[in-house]
Amino acid sequence: MNIFRLAGDMTHLMSVLVLLLKIHTIKSCAGISLKTQELYALVFATRYLDIFTDFISVYNTIMKLIFLGSSFSIVWYMRRHKLVRRSYDKEQDTFRHFFLVLPCLLLALVMNEKFTFKEVMWAFSLYLEAVAILPQLVLLQRTKNIDNLTGQYVFLLGAYRAFYIFNWIYRYFTEPHYVHWITWISGLVQTLLYADFFYYYFNSWKNNVKLHLPA
């Protein structure tokens, strides 16, 4: 465990927990894409198939349980909670899961470390994580409005991506066997999509400030 990895895990954890706590507290999920949240729940469910078969560390197991629990809780809130689901921008959040899930599944069947169910699911989860933000990006472009909730969530996710790239570079030079193309390429694609997200975020933020300036 290096400092970049820990910082990446912590910002990733905070992004999910901040979102869950805010939805729970303010009973609103305005601006948040349910499609993206469902894709993340699917990402964790397919990546952590090893949770009960391969023990790595107490830290690893607890983190996996928290990610699974919190991501499915967010989906539950947005779909089932009577107040939260009223604030959901359903008409705007129209991205189809299918268009992301199917190509990722096909790619995982072709590009994997070993052709076993667990390995294919693991590769699938990495490809899907890379593009799972797209429905959120589309929703953001449509509503052209980012509140603090969405802003903090995206900022923390972006920090997680950046720290993980530093972690891979660090591990590449310190651990002789650490070569992992599937993780790196999908991680890089994901980070580039976040850079795009940040671009829209700062643009919207800038425009909002301009709008509020006195004439």
């Binding site: 790595i56 993980y164 310190t174 651990e175």
Partner: peptide, 10 residues
């Protein structure tokens, strides 16, 4: 680091 260390990431 062993080859197994790869999947210790979240």
């Amino acid at each position: 680091g062993s080859p197994d260390s790869v999947k210790d990431e979240l």
